[in-house]
Write a protein that binds this DNA or RNA. Structure first.
Length: 293
DNA sequence: GTTCGCACCTGAGCGC
DNA sequence: TGCGCTCAGGTGCGAA
C-alpha cells in the first residue's frame, strides 16, 4: 500500500519523466478517478490541455503537479494513489491494462503518464495553491499535516498536539491531520522500533517517548526509501513498474507467528478498526487498561 | 470541537 | 467447478 516512502519514490520518478512537458490530452477512463473534481472529467481534461508541468510536490501521501498556466483558477493537479493506485510512465504502444483509470498524453508524443488503480480509491483533482506558512499547498489538502520528512515539520508542536489528544498512539499516527504519510504498515513498524503498543493512550506517553518514536519513524521511512518502498504484491510499483523490496526488512507487519527479531517471542496479529495490527507481545506489552485476560 | 465507526471498492485466496 | 465469504486499508462523512 502506498505510504510516504512509496509516494516519494513515485514523486521522484515523475519529476524525472514529466517536468517540463506540455499536456496534449487527458483521458478519464473511470468516473471514480475524477470523483473529487466536482466539475467532471471533461472539465478536468479541458483545463489541463496546453499546460506545462513545472514541478512535482508531495505532502504525506498526496502528490500534486504544479502547472505553468492559470487553468481558470486552478494551478495544480492533485494525484492520490489511494490503496492501489499506480502512476506509470509508459510508451504509447504499451497495451492498456485492465485497471487503467486515466491517461495523460504530452505534446512531444513521447511516454504517457497512466493512472492505474485496481480498487479505485485513488483520484485526480484540479485545485488552487494557497500560501501555507513558508510554502504553498493545494487548498483542499490544507487540513493535511506536514509529514516527518518535511523540513518545516515541527517536532515539538506534533508532540504537544499528540499528547493533548484523548486517543491511542496508533490512531494518532494514522491521523493525517496531526502528521501525514503514515499508514498501517509503517505505524506498526515504528511502534515496534519504539517498543510501544499501539493501544497506549497518547496522554500517557512522555515527550521523550514521542521523540524516540519520531526518530524511529524517520529511520524506517529512510530505510524504506532507499529500498524503493514496500511491495507485498503487484499493487505498488514505481513509475517504471518496478517493485520495492523493503518488505524483506519489515520487523512485524505481515509476520504473525514468526519470532520477534529482538526478543524471540511470536509476533501477534490483532483485529483493529476493520484491519490488522501487528506487534510483539514481549517488546510491546499492552497497556493495563486494555490488556486481555 | 473531538472522537469513532463505517462505507467505498476490487480481486485474491480459501472453504465448502 | 462454482459460489460465497473474508481480507487488504486511505479517506471522508455522519453520528455520538
Amino acid at each position: 500500500m502506498p505510504e510516504l516512502p512509496e509516494v516519494e519514490t513515485v514523486r521522484a520518478g515523475l519529476e524525472r519523466w514529466i517536468v517540463g512537458r506540455t499536456i496534449a490530452a487527458v483521458d478519464s477512463l473511470h468516473p471514480r478517478a475524477v470523483r473529487r473534481h466536482s466539475p467532471g472529467a471533461a472539465d478536468l481534461a479541458e483545463r489541463l490541455i496546453a499546460t506545462t508541468v513545472v514541478a512535482v510536490h508531495r505532502r504525506g501521501k498526496y502528490l500534486w503537479l504544479s502547472l505553468d498556466a492559470d487553468t481558470a483558477g486552478s494551478d495544480c493537479l492533485i494525484l492520490h494513489l489511494g490503496m492501489s493506485g499506480q502512476l506509470l510512465v509508459s510508451t504509447p504502444q504499451a497495451p492498456d491494462g485492465p485497471h487503467l483509470r486515466g491517461r495523460i498524453r504530452f505534446r512531444d508524443d513521447g511516454t504517457q503518464l497512466r493512472f492505474v488503480d485496481q480498487r479505485t480509491f485513488g483520484a485526480m483533482q484540479l485545485d488552487a495553491l494557497r500560501t501555507d506558512g513558508p510554502s504553498e499547498t493545494p487548498s483542499s489538502i490544507l487540513h493535511i499535516g506536514r509529514d516527518p520528512l518535511d523540513p518545516y515539520f515541527d517536532d515539538r508542536d506534533w508532540i504537544r498536539r499528540t499528547r493533548a489528544r484523548r486517543t491511542t498512539i496508533k490512531r494518532a499516527l494514522l491521523d493525517q491531520s496531526l502528521m501525514s504519510g503514515v499508514g498501517n504498515i509503517y505505524a506498526d513498524e515504528a511502534l515496534w522500533r519504539a517498543k510501544l503498543h499501539g493501544d497506549r493512550p497518547t496522554a500517557s506517553l512522555s515527550s521523550t517517548q514521542l521523540t524516540t518514536l519520531l526518530t524511529d519513524l524517520r529511520s524506517v521511512f529512510g530505510e524504506a526509501l532507499r529500498a524503493g518502498g514496500t511491495s507485498f504484491d503487484a499493487l505498488y510499483v514505481d513509475v517504471n513498474g518496478q517493485s520495492g523490496y523493503f518488505d524483506r526488512s519489515l520487523a512485524v507487519y505481515g509476520r504473525a507467528g514468526e519470532a520477534c527479531r529482538r526478543c524471540g517471542k511470536p509476533i501477534s496479529r490483532a483485529k483493529w478498526m476493520n484491519r490488522s495490527s501487528y506487534f510483539c507481545p514481549g517488546c510491546q506489552p499492552r497497556p493495563r487498561a486494555v490488556r486481555k485476560v
